[in-house]
Design a protein around this nucleic acid. Structure first.
Lengths: 219, 219
DNA sequence: GTCTATAGAATGATAGAC
DNA sequence: GTCTATCATTCTATAGAC
């Protein structure tokens, strides 16, 4: 092995260590921020959850705010992927059913991320303000156009497109953000796989019937 | 004026001062807790917003936690009143439309309270856990019974009652909790009176049509 | 009942040995 | 790259004059 190879291997190892540590810290931070909020979370709690000394966090992330910012930005990519799942080439029933399904799955798989996101918006979006004003605004403008075309074509009833999307966002994210309350009303137990299927089925059914399309057959 | 009257008047005045100060502090605290979360809020910020010296807060509320607790309990009474607005003696269309209307009005008039409530539940309901396990559980049990009767009587389509209520709660509270995001998508301006009317109309229409009842005529 | 000053505890961040 | 020790700041809470 040449010196160059050795150096490359060393650099490679270093990068791997760095990526693994950063990921470990981000995972811990996401959960602690979700449970206690930005102000309620301490670097010590995040370090404990990541099973690392507190000083290590500052080695990888300069400040608490920088760490929070990266947590939020990581969640943003998940959101953007979900936004893409609204396939505008499909008919309204298929497109909306698929979008709702995706959003429900995001709530199920990333409950902590959803809570951090909700708190971020509730507190005035200090980090994602630019995203709201650019990406989200453009996404909404595009989808409003599609929904209005569905209305003009008589495929769904007249409705203000934004209010429809708020309904879908609110309902699907509720299953993550209010999971604690939902669990209490579910006799203290988390929703089972069957519960999730039933919830998705009912949400899709109400929305599709609500906008005037027949729910597609489920095999 | 007798000594007794003087004392009574003094006591009366004292009580008025106390009530006014407590209310002033609670109003300020609700807003600061909503904007920054419990951990992110400081007694100094609340004092500044209430235009009182910080020490006054501790005179009326022993600790920050006690103050937070009273803020949450004050919101709880508003929630309980709104819960009562679901009149089970009415037909499903009227009952649900009236309930949704009430919940939308709560979101409009108490956005800060709604945010505090959402954060409280997201963080595991440290203060309202008992309420969730008693009052809310009983309320839900009673309403599930009514909704199932509506289903059995063929007045609405089959649906798991809880998922219907989650949808109503999520959607109506979204207008308070995500107001910042909604404003951005509304060209940066808060929703006008007409916007609120349109939103309420669309939410009621989708839910009622979604559960299979015809929206009642609006004069 | 009001307010200034301050004690006491917790936190974010860093220095410096390993 | 890891970790202990520590600094500087901020915050909750209270003491005590008015």
């Amino acid at each position: 092995m040449s010196d160059k190879d050795t150096a490359a291997a060393a650099n490679g190892k270093k990068t791997e260590i760095r990526l693994a540590a950063e990921r470990r810290i981000l995972d811990a931070a996401e959960k602690v921020f979700a449970e206690r909020g930005f102000g309620g979370a301490s670097m010590q709690q995040i370090a404990d959850r990541a099973e690392l000394p507190k000083a290590n966090l500052h080695y990888y992330f300069s400040t608490k705010e920088a760490l929070y910012r990266q947590v939020v930005e990581r969640i943003l990519t998940i959101w953007l992927d979900a936004a893409d799942s609204l396939d505008v080439t499909e008919d309204p029933a298929t497109a909306l059913a698929s979008y709702i399904d995706t959003k429900m799955e995001v709530s199920r798989k990333h409950p902590a991320g959803s809570k951090v996101w909700a708190a971020e918006v509730m507190h005035g979006a200090p980090v994602i303000q630019v995203y709201l004003e650019t990406t989200l605004r453009e996404w909404m403008a595009g989808r409003e156009y599609i929904v209005r075309r569905w209305i003009d074509d008589g495929l769904i009833v007249p409705i203000e497109p934004r209010y429809l999307f708020y309904m879908i966002w609110a309902t699907t994210q509720h299953y993550a953000d209010f999971a604690h309350q939902i669990n209490v009303l579910n006799d203290g137990a988390p929703m089972s796989d069957d519960d999730w299927l039933a919830a998705k089925r009912d949400v899709v059914a109400v929305i599709l019937r609500g906008v005037g399309v027949i729910p597609p057959r489920v095999e």
